[in-house]
Design a binder for these strands. Structure first.
Length: 192
DNA sequence: CCCTGATTCGC
DNA sequence: GCGAATCAGG
């Protein structure tokens, strides 16, 4: 794969949107995140500029280089544009999904409690089965790739998150994805 | 362990 | 110019 205009376009767009190099690489296909990062640097947009208005980032007035130094390496401005906002403690919210500062995949339906729901019996069975193996993580222990399916009542001690490995790109493990993301049918018109 | 971007350097 | 390998960090 080569860096065609369109691919570069998409790269620029996604990068300025704050997408990670790996995400961009996945989207583009045929390249690794290293390739993306390399390209990003070559394009000179290592700093996430373009869409995010920097409150105080002066692009350097570019002082006339009179000296004989073809290889200047001034890097006095060191900003931290990327931080890791971990989930903050939430009191009694049924769905404390730690949202990033930007869109991840598509719309994410809030996790319905497995109790009062009639989804496919198999899926439900899978869920209750999985809950035995659940890591039972606390809010603080959740990561991007731990299933964030809440179990129990947040107002009680008997509350935890599934914590199993998530399905790529999803907030839940496979079993919970199964009940969280309904095709929005089958219940509506379930007669087979 | 998972991930992030940054840098180097042979191609 | 390209990107794998490597580095540095969370």
């Amino acid at each position: 794969m080569s860096w065609t205009d369109e691919r570069v376009e998409l790269l620029k767009k996604m990068w300025s949107e704050g997408q990670s190099a790996s995400q961009i690489a996945k989207e583009l296909g045929g390249v690794t995140r290293n390739a993306v990062i390399g390209k990003v640097h070559r394009l000179g947009l290592s700093n996430r500029a373009g869409a995010a208005p920097a409150p105080e980032t002066k692009p350097e007035p570019k002082p006339a280089p009179a000296a004989a130094k073809p290889k200047p390496a001034p890097k006095p401005v060191e900003a931290k544009p990327e931080s890791r906002p971990e989930p903050a403690p939430v009191a009694a919210a049924p769905s404390p999904l730690p949202a990033r500062k930007q869109i991840i995949p598509a719309g994410q339906p809030l996790p319905p409690q497995p109790s009062a729901n009639e989804i496919s019996p198999e899926a439900l069975a899978k869920v209750s089965e999985v809950e035995k193996k659940a890591k039972r993580l606390t809010l603080m222990e959740l990561t991007e790739r731990t299933c964030k399916w809440p179990v129990g009542d947040p107002a009680t001690e008997d509350f935890w998150f599934c914590g199993l490995p998530v399905q790529q790109g999803k907030p839940y493990c496979e079993a919970h994805v199964g009940v969280a993301f309904q095709p929005m049918s089958s219940r509506r018109d379930r007669r087979r």
